[in-house]
Write a protein that binds this DNA or RNA. Structure first.
Lengths: 307, 307
DNA sequence: AAACAACATCAGAAAATCAGAGGTATCGAT
DNA sequence: ATCGATACCTCTGATTTTCTGATGTTGTTT
């Protein structure tokens, strides 16, 4: 690897000028460095490529010109490698891979994408629903560019921006008596059968919520998907406590549910976006920014139920 | 130019192994060098390309794999540049450009080419007739790979191998009285009209030859080509003194000439092959060798007239 | 002959590279 | 839970490479 890109650059520049001194001036280095580079190239091929005529500059012979052509080609390829690499960082094109532990992400993610992906950008989205740990694994090993996850369960190595604190709320069938209240309390719920979202982080969280308040009624159902929880609630199976909520009150089953804030001071869950903060690709950074500004606004698009 | 070929090599090797230590072993360098190279590549693109998981090696993310692909491509191109360069030196293919100041070169060059160019080699010959100075210029500035020229007029910078000493001989019409002698002397020629080859080096040389011996007869003709001299001689215009001679006694005019050695001790001209001795391409070296062995043999193929 | 232009060479300085030691995180087995 | 193996990171000093600037040489031009 004696023939470095630098040597090739010097070599081709010198040939282009036909003059070592001029090349040195252009490259802002000493002429001797150019001369040495030419020596290197010749040594590498063990060929005389250039005739050096004192007081008349240098001139490449046929072999020299052939080598120079190839070198120029390689340097061009190198430049395009660099700029393509730059585009990897700069451009919005490419693939944006997002893992999310946020079952109601469909409620807001499309809107976020709309905000930072103008029409015509050819970004391919890869969206993968997963649990909090998988998301963090995926972020660390490069599977995901960014993750939406619950910050309370964040590992120290994960860099993230909090997006929103989602306080738990109560999901009720429309016909439920509590639905007539604008706010419900944990005490209100003590008698209610519950439909519990049984997902890694969520299960422990809900468990924590109820450890304080006494529970009389049994758990009516465990479900591993948010929509199942919602549909069970809509069908009157019980109430549920959730943190984020879609923008529709209608469930897959066609029936409706009602969301009511909880008056008790319960620990919220923080939705956060995790990503590589040290060197984010532009599209990743844009996505993060879009997430932040999305949740910075108030309104139903934030998918939380305020007290 | 922070991203060197070396760094790319280390980077791609590390990714291929998914393991810095293994890559270091393969490349016979310290692991820290690999790690530094990866840092360099990432810094160059200002992107995280690799996730380093202690005790589990390294893993490229999508960007890393993309960059690696491009790097591998570039390194391949680099390798082929090197090997093509090697072929420039090694192979017999390519172009062999020869300038010659030897008007009778057609008498022997084809035979020389036969000797070192086996059938099927795709060497393109570029043969250019020129004068001694042009030949040397062309050799120095890379226009010619090798030159056939007169060594007496060689510049110090030109490296050459003498091929043959060509003593002057006398060219006579077949019907000329002197043609009956097996040898002629300068004195014999003093009375004869001369046909003089009027070419840069030759003119001075012949001038020198006659400065010593007295000349009575005028110069019958000056001609700038050997064949014209021969034809003029054949036509009886006069005699000529030349150094090398073709293998035919017939001239373009269809008439014949006779060559006779000169008994006087006159300075010969040395036919030499000039070339770049420091780094000859293989085909050039082969050509030179073929020239030497051609003129090392005795016989009419040497194109001289012996006493 | 003198002035000028341009490459060659060399020594020392600056920079890059590398090896090796020591440290730390992770995983798996005990 | 602890220990050992693995594998990456960081730091330091040595080595190698590269560069500069001065000086020398050569060839051209006036």
């Amino acid at each position: 690897m004696a023939l470095t890109l630098k040597a090739m650059t010097y070599f081709t520049t010198a040939l282009r000028h036909g003059n070592i001194a001029k090349a040195a001036a252009e490259l802002n280095i000493a002429a001797s460095a150019i001369s040495a580079a030419i020596d290197q190239v010749e040594a590498e091929f063990d060929l005389t490529l250039v005739t050096r005529q004192r007081a008349r500059g240098i001139q490449a012979n046929a072999s020299g010109r052939a080598v120079a052509r190839k070198c120029i080609r390689l340097l061009d390829d190198y430049q395009s490698l660099l700029s393509e690499g730059g585009e990897l960082k700069q451009s919005l094109s490419g693939t944006l891979r997002i893992g999310y532990y946020a079952p109601i992400a469909p409620a807001f993610l499309p809107q976020i994408f709309d905000a930072f992906l103008p029409e015509g950008t050819n970004v391919t989205l890869e969206l993968e629903e997963c649990d909090n740990d998988q998301a963090q694994d995926g972020l660390m090993n490069g599977k995901y560019d960014a993750i939406l996850f619950v910050a309370e369960d964040a590992r120290p190595a994960i860099a993230y921006d909090p997006l929103i604190e989602a306080h738990p709320y109560c999901l009720l069938p429309v016909a439920h008596p509590l639905a007539r209240q604008s706010v419900v309390s944990m005490a209100d719920l003590a008698q209610e059968p519950l439909v519990v979202l049984n997902r890694p982080v969520a299960a422990a969280y809900y468990d924590g919520l109820f450890r304080t308040g006494a529970r009389d009624a049994p758990v009516a159902a465990y479900a591993t998907s948010t929509e199942m929880v919602r549909s069970l609630v809509a069908a009157g199976r019980g109430c549920a406590i959730l943190n984020m909520c879609p923008r529709t009150s209608e469930t897959y089953s066609g029936e409706k549910v009602v969301a009511r804030p909880i008056s008790d001071d319960l620990a919220p869950l923080t939705l956060a976006v995790g990503y590589d903060k040290t060197r984010p690709r532009r599209s990743v950074q844009d996505f993060v920014n879009a997430c932040r500004s999305h949740f910075a606004k108030s309104g139903p698009a934030r998918c939380v139920v305020g007290r």
